Amino acid sequence: MERRDVLADAAIAVLADAGMRGLTHRAVDAAAGLAEGTSSYYFRTRAALLQACVDRLAAQTLTEVPRGGSGPGSVEALVDASVAVVGRWLTADRARLLARWELALESTRRPELGTALRDAGRRIRERVAGALHGLGIADPERRADDLVACLDGLAFDQLAGAGPDRDGAALRSAIADVVHGFTATPD
């Protein structure tokens, strides 16, 4: 793993543990187990460190979304993959999810960060749209926006305790309702 990725992962962990106020170059160096000053050598400013977090989160998320032709072979496979992703976000990748929300909130005060997050989100939604197109789902760009918003909302509700406590079956049911809704014929 490259040093920049190690530092970005450490910054993501700091964001998840200590929030935006806790994100300092010194805290990132400590989290990465590297000498003081290492992160500021690679990412001179706080803005550069935030950009590194956005870039790393986007790269990791893109690995979870199959490319067009290698997408899920069926609508049920898409549901299964979506459930697995949200499940991972809520467990093994919880820090990534918390860090992304910290960045999203900060982007309301930092327009350049908002631009970076929108660009990253656009790349992810384009990849999702490709998978939906591969399944023959109509209007895949709009539906990709809907699916990503649904998955984000379900993850937020579950992790923040803002909505009902869903077990795996309830989570699958909610995602299946949305995805199957894409294939329904309008009356």
Rank of each mutant, 00 (worst) to 15 (best):
G130K: 05
G161L: 09
S82D: 02
Q51P: 02
V75T: 05
A155Y: 06
Q51T: 15
A162T: 12
R67P: 13
V75W: 00
V79L: 08
L105T: 11
P140Q: 05
G136F: 03
V65C: 03
Y42T: 08
R142L: 15
L103M: 07
V128P: 00
G71Y: 03
A155R: 06
G71S: 02
V148G: 06
A59K: 06
A47M: 08
V65F: 08
G136P: 02
G71E: 01
E126G: 01
Q51K: 14
D145P: 01
C53H: 04
R44M: 01
L135H: 01
R67I: 15
G87M: 03
A116D: 06
E102H: 11
R143G: 06
R109H: 15
E76R: 09
E112C: 02
A155M: 09
W101T: 11
A59T: 08
V54E: 07
I137P: 07
L135F: 07
L117R: 02
A149P: 00
R56Q: 10
A59R: 11
E106P: 06
D146M: 15
A92H: 11
G153R: 00
G161C: 10
V148H: 10
Y41P: 01
Y42L: 12
E102C: 08
G37Q: 02
G163A: 12
A131V: 10
Y42P: 04
A84S: 10
F156H: 14
L132S: 00
R125S: 02
V148C: 14
A144D: 00
W89N: 02
R56F: 09
A31T: 03
G121V: 07
S107D: 05
G134D: 00
G130C: 01
L147G: 00
A162N: 13
L57H: 03
D165G: 14
S107H: 08
V75H: 01
T63K: 14
R166L: 13
P72W: 09
A59D: 08
E76D: 13
A144I: 04
Q158G: 13
R110D: 13
E76F: 03
S70K: 07
A144R: 00
V75L: 09
A160C: 14
D157P: 10
Y42H: 14
C53D: 03
G121M: 07
